[in-house]
Amino acid sequence: MDSHQDSHAAPVLNNAVPVRHPGRWISAVIIVGFLLAFLQSLFTNPNFRWDVVGTYILDTKVIQGVMWTLFLTFASMVLAIVLAILLAFMRQSDNPVFRWSSWTWVWFFRGTPVYTQLLFWGLATVLYPTIVLGIPFGPATFTWVTSDPTHGLIPAILGLGLNESAYLAEIFRAGLKSVDQGQSEAAEALGMTKGKIMRRIILPQAMRVIVPPTGNETIGMLKTTSLVLAVPFTLDLTFATNALANRIYLPIPLLIVAAFWYLVITSILMVGQHFIEAHYGKGVDNRVPAAINPAAAKASAAVAPSAAAEPDLKMDFPEEEAK
């Protein structure tokens, strides 16, 4: 800084007249106008039958449907994530058999409609009425009668999970590839073994890239569960509300009930995703360093003023990043 140019009087601020944006006002008027008209219709149009919505929104069948939908989403995503991690690792493996099987799996499950796959898994109970685990031609250790009234729960989870694993495998592969080559070289140079490098160095960094599209897929899965009637599995939210609608001949209020619950679950998932992203963004999305001792904390505030001045204020909408 040049002391000669330092003037002791406070500078006169420029206070420039900002550029006007008439377009913003016009668009706001148009959009708000439409919104008001729509809101008015919600209240005045008797066909919405809000009284019916109110009656059924907490109906036992509906709440059970919500729970089953949540369970289906959760179970099939867990299955898909486990399979996808395996597939992504296999795809990167030195073993050509692994690479080839992983590629074929993705090719098949991504290449056929999920509805078709669900139909198939439903029919698999006809194809294999009982599944016996054990030594071939030897004694059985585990027998499962597939035609049990488990109501196609397992076929539904298999159908959804296997299909999803193909998509997630590609997301995971992209995530692993996104980590700089120098990271594994540095870890190798330190004498770390392959498994540890993957677990402690590569995966935590890949997660930053993996989490947003996986959140997207989870929300997608929530709604894809409505296809399980193909199996058939008949306890999920869409089937439950449809069944009620057909009974009382009032489809619209029950569609609103279903939409309401899907929105509630999606919103909760988005909040969860935000926290997962924040966790894996450590060190990359500029944040205040963890204080080891007060002196270090003070020093850190001094060197990293920008980081200290703007703590994690921005709340990103995950979908925006995914696209």
Binding site: D180, G182, Q183, E185, A186, A187, E188, A189, L190, G191, I201, P204, Q205, Y280, K282, G283, V284
Partner: peptide, 16 residues
């Protein structure tokens, strides 16, 4: 490799 330390041009610190 444990007996050999290496320092890279681009540092390659673990960012997380």
């Amino acid at each position: 490799r444990r007996e050999i330390g290496m320092v890279f041009q681009r540092f390659n610190l673990f960012p997380h």
